[in-house]
Computed example of a mutant assay.
Amino acid sequence: MFIEIGTAFFDPAAWPHMFSLDNTATWPEKIIRPIVVYASLVVLLRIFGRRELAQLNPFDLVVILSLSNTVQNAIIGQDNSLIGGLVGAIALLLINYFFAWVKFKFRTVEKLAEGNTVKLMENSRIHHKAVRREMMTDTDLASIVHEAGFDCVEDVEKIVLDPNGKFLVEGKDEIKDNEFKSQVLKKIDSLTKQISDLTATLQKT
């Protein structure tokens, strides 16, 4: 295997093919393809909601993996050359940088592209219409609550879905107080045990 790699590495005929575009692709095409795919994905994710960014169940994971494989051919076409792949990657990075700059300069564009925050629960009351709009089930809400460190939905005061797909979960005040008291008691017990061990050690000496 190493002999074959060495032969290919020192083969003069391999280098021009590696650093030249395929005959089926042109420079403008290699630049335009990633831009069109990037813009299309931004629009599609905006239309179909933030579920793909927020809660990835097995079905959503299959969609994401299939989507990446599907758009690969749309970006590079039939060109498998090294320079063609680099041109496509650079075009993607540049369009992403440009889009980030536009969002930074114009907040209206950011709202149009990412949307607003969605309140799924407020004052311990679930907004069922918003939950249905995001196509989330009671099991999804329970998973979000558990990941935030709460035992059940009843312990939560507010759940907000940010435009970036992350969840903000706030517990009820009494739950927060109970958790704080529990942590303090655990630390007191730990300190008491350490003092007892230290006292026993000093008595032996």
Rank of each mutant, 00 (worst) to 15 (best):
P16E: 13
E179G: 11
F59H: 15
V36A: 11
Y38A: 07
E147P: 08
T117C: 04
D189H: 11
I175E: 09
K166P: 00
F59Q: 15
E114D: 14
I159Q: 00
Y38W: 08
P163Q: 01
T205V: 05
D151T: 14
T26K: 05
F106C: 06
M121F: 00
Y38K: 07
V169D: 02
P16S: 11
I47Q: 13
Q183S: 11
H17D: 15
D138V: 04
F150G: 03
N164E: 00
V36F: 09
L65E: 02
P163N: 03
L45K: 13
A200W: 04
N73Y: 12
G6H: 10
V156I: 01
V156G: 00
L41I: 09
N164S: 01
W15F: 06
S66P: 03
F180V: 14
Q183Y: 04
V42D: 09
R132Y: 12
S66G: 14
K176W: 14
T137P: 05
A8V: 10
G49S: 13
E157T: 01
S66W: 02
V118C: 01
I90A: 10
E52G: 08
T192I: 12
S20T: 15
N164H: 00
N123T: 00
A39Q: 04
I188S: 13
I3C: 05
S81H: 05
E52C: 11
H128R: 12
C152S: 13
F48P: 15
E147Q: 14
E134A: 10
V131A: 01
F2R: 04
T139M: 10
D138E: 09
A89R: 05
D177V: 15
H17Y: 15
A89D: 07
L67G: 13
K187F: 10
V42E: 11
T7H: 13
Q194T: 12
H128V: 13
I144L: 04
W15I: 09
T199Y: 06
D189V: 10
F180G: 09
L141P: 01
V118T: 03
L44H: 06
A25Y: 02
G171V: 06
F98G: 15
M136V: 05
S66Q: 02
L65C: 04
F98W: 15
I76E: 02
I64D: 05
E4K: 07
I3R: 10
A91I: 03
I126S: 00
I90C: 07
N73K: 11
L161Q: 03
M136T: 03
S190L: 09
K103M: 15
L92K: 02
V145I: 06
V118F: 02
V184K: 14
E154N: 05
I64V: 04
M18L: 12
P163M: 02
K111A: 13
K119Q: 03
I83A: 07
D22Y: 04
V71T: 12
H127F: 05
V36L: 14
